[in-house]
């Protein structure tokens, strides 16, 4: 019995006293909620992240009006995606933590150049979430998109995007595709199937004032994002875009349509339209 106690104490102190190896207090972590990937010149990769600011959120609940943004946008570059992410540590006092990352946003140029090696990192890393959504920004870079995107109804853009993706996934609308990192990679690896990612566009919240141009315009006008359509890949390279109608066709073919609105001409009265709601559709899992 006494021997057992000695062994127990030794083991117990060995396991508790030598240090708390993997302990990460919440206030030492920077929660990354969205992540953007671009390719810059000299074949460098640029990573842009949204890091949530918990204290700003807390203050917001105390006084209803908070001028402070609830997130911090920061970018860093490196020769590979992993290096770029590691370089973020030099700028962030709180260790970026990717387990809550919900979006991987890819700039159009980067997507056209190929994303396989970048996404591979997120597939293999234990921290990253395989259910993060893969989105491609049409006509812009991911950095520009992430720096400006904001939703009126949510303090964190990722929460806003999550809200939209949620009902996309539920199939409220048949137009956008739903694409997680997992399904993207699955299609990438499989023979005979090519991946399709979500197309996002920046939509100006206010129409630009006439006369304001260039940088001024970018600084003043906040943008919101719009999901819809699809980015079509061949291999890991973006080859083109599908509009809403075409995307619905893709969804019909892959059996992903759950619901949505079909607008057709009224058969017996020319010039008038009828909206049909899809209630049930054959599903493929």
């Amino acid at each position: 019995m006494s021997k057992f106690i000695i062994i127990f104490i030794t083991a117990f102190s060995a396991s508790t006293l030598t240090g708390c190896w993997n302990r990460r207090e919440l206030d030492t972590l920077g929660f990354v909620t969205a992540l953007g990937v671009d390719r810059t010149g000299e074949s460098k990769i640029e990573i842009t992240v949204h890091v949530a600011k918990p204290f700003a959120i807390a203050r917001a609940t105390e006084s209803s009006v908070s001028p402070e943004k609830a997130f911090w946008v920061v970018s860093s570059t490196g020769s590979t995606a992993f290096e770029a992410i590691r370089n973020l540590l030099l700028q962030s006092p709180r260790r970026p933590f990717y387990a809550h990352n919900r979006f991987i946003v890819i700039g159009e140029e980067c997507a056209r150049a190929g994303v396989g090696d970048i996404l591979d990192l997120f597939a293999r890393d234990g921290e990253a979430r395989r259910l993060a959504r893969v989105e491609v920004v049409k006509g812009s870079t991911a950095r520009q998109f992430l720096e400006q995107v904001e939703f009126e109804l949510e303090r964190l853009p990722s929460e806003g995007g999550q809200g939209i993706s949620r009902y996309v996934q539920e199939g409220v609308s048949a137009e956008p595709v739903d694409c997680t990192l997992n399904s993207f990679l699955r299609c990438l690896e499989a023979e005979g199937v090519e991946p399709v990612a979500v197309r996002v566009e920046a939509v100006p919240k206010m129409p630009a004032a006439p006369g304001s141009v260039g940088d001024l315009l970018r600084d003043q006008v906040k943008i919101s994002s719009k999901h819809g359509g699809a980015a079509v890949f061949k291999g890991d390279k973006l080859v083109g875009w599908l509009d809403e109608r075409e995307t619905r066709g893709v969804n019909w073919v892959t059996g992903k349509v759950r619901s949505g609105i079909l607008v057709i001409d009224q058969p017996n009265e020319k010039g008038k339209l009828v909206s049909l709601e899809i209630l049930r559709a054959p599903r493929a899992s």
């Binding site: 919440l26 929660f31 918990p54 959120i57």
Partner: peptide, 10 residues
């Protein structure tokens, strides 16, 4: 998690 983190602030 953000809520808890904001409470643990400080």
């Amino acid at each position: 998690v953000l809520n808890i983190a904001s409470q643990r602030e400080g």
